[in-house]
Design a protein around this nucleic acid. Structure first.
Lengths: 236, 236
DNA sequence: ATGATGCTGACGAAAATTGGCAGCAGCGTC
DNA sequence: GACGCTGCTGCCAATTTTCGTCAGCATCAT
């Protein structure tokens, strides 16, 4: 039996036992050495499984690794499909793919009638005016926001003047035609927004910024409150 | 990436595409040689996956594979939240509510870390130019599409000329500012699109229309093929 | 017919896997 | 505190698997 099959098996065995099981017992059940079992557990954990091991006790698989069956109303399905189609059509490649992927995961745990609803959904996003393509990989921006890391941006403002700056990114705003990375800018010592299609280069720095993402967002909203919301202001 | 992780990935990629995908495309997407991909497919099949491969066509994953999908990735959560936010902001009230409610259902089965991801998501839909409000309840339109019922519309065209007509609705297209109900129009004996904000009255009729929704859509696409896609054409 | 695609075999180089050992650390019980 | 059980990690050499390439054949759509 190959290692990958064994991992599937191990997952099943863990799901079967609700009580903690010792590594030794698992190793014997699967027919592998204890050392290897520890490595297998580590592999599954690396893939996102929440397997908890306590010394003197054993292993337990906490729920949350596998997606349980879900139930939705037809209208909720329509909403999910439509939203995902918007993302698939208007966001960067990685996120678009993630939208399709999430939908597929949901579809896999749906009862057949709802899955049919999902596949035959008649709500479509019309292809709008072409969206300016990003020169950089927007996935990096999103990741930096998630992890609250600083970014080093190479940016061209509306006049085409280039600049290089360190920013603290905390939000990404999707307009109809444009996406804005909203950040604290160390160069200006103030909040600044950057059109993603004007970002020439981006590098995620190792240092994290000192303020909480949520706090930055709150402060930014207070500052922005007086300004009209639907106009696009970008950095200079 | 280890082989076992790759197999999980491959499964998910297959779930995402519902159309047949060529082995070459899959191999490139996963970053592996074609030969290895064939071996991976064989591995999954050996573990019970019902992956069908036809020469000249590609691969399709039949639903019902015993292995349930894994939990969402953070990126997938971001995509779902962003999509639902778009629907919540741009669709009619009922659908907007359905989007929020679907998200809540998903949140309920999420492990704590992902739920946090969902709640703190930093991807926002910017409030665009105001969208013309509908005079009628768009939920009726969607319901008629789902059940393939005829609709009696009171409509005003671009010049404000009123008309009353029976239509067979089969799709709803969301443009940035406008929503179009796409139908077969009995009055014109042809396909017609109606801006939802120009529909003055709507009544769902008891009779269902004689053609399948999916067939109408297919025919409409063929007819529309020659025309520019991102312009809004509405009924006269 | 032709091209696209699925599928299999062989082979050598590269990489991963495996088990054994040794040691450390946390947990519960005595 | 002592002890046993257990989780967990590092190391290493032998073994196994994996991988890409090449080559060839079969099947399906056009």
């Amino acid at each position: 039996m190959s290692r990958s099959e064994r991992l599937f098996d191990l997952l099943q065995v863990l799901r079967r036992h609700r009580r903690p099981v010792s590594g030794r017992a698992l190793a014997e059940e699967i027919g592998v050495s204890l050392r290897t079992l520890y490595r297998d557990i580590a592999s599954l954990q690396a893939q996102g499984a929440t397997i908890e091991g306590e010394a003197g006790v054993g292993y337990v698989l906490r729920p949350g690794f596998l997606l349980p069956p879900l139930m939705f109303t037809p209208e909720e399905i329509e909403a999910l499909v439509l939203g995902s189609r918007w993302v698939a059509g208007r966001a960067d490649g990685r996120l678009a793919e993630a939208a399709r992927s999430a939908l597929a995961r949901i579809g896999a745990v749906l009862p057949p009638d709802l899955r049919e609803e999902m596949e035959g959904s008649a709500l479509f996003i019309a292809p709008g005016a072409p969206i300016p393509a990003d020169a950089i990989d927007a996935a990096i921006l999103r990741k930096a926001i998630r992890t609250e890391n600083k970014l080093l941006l190479g940016y061209s403002d509306a006049n085409g003047a280039p600049s290089e700056r360190v920013v603290w990114p905390f939000a990404l705003a999707f307009f109809d035609q444009v996406r804005l990375l909203i950040s604290w800018c160390e160069l200006r010592d103030d909040f600044r927004s950057f059109r993603t299609d004007r970002i020439a280069t981006v590098e995620m720095m190792e240092t994290r910024y000192p303020t909480r993402r949520a706090d930055l967002l709150k402060q930014w909203k207070q500052v922005k409150h007086a300004q009209p919301a639907h106009e696009v202001h970008t950095a200079e």
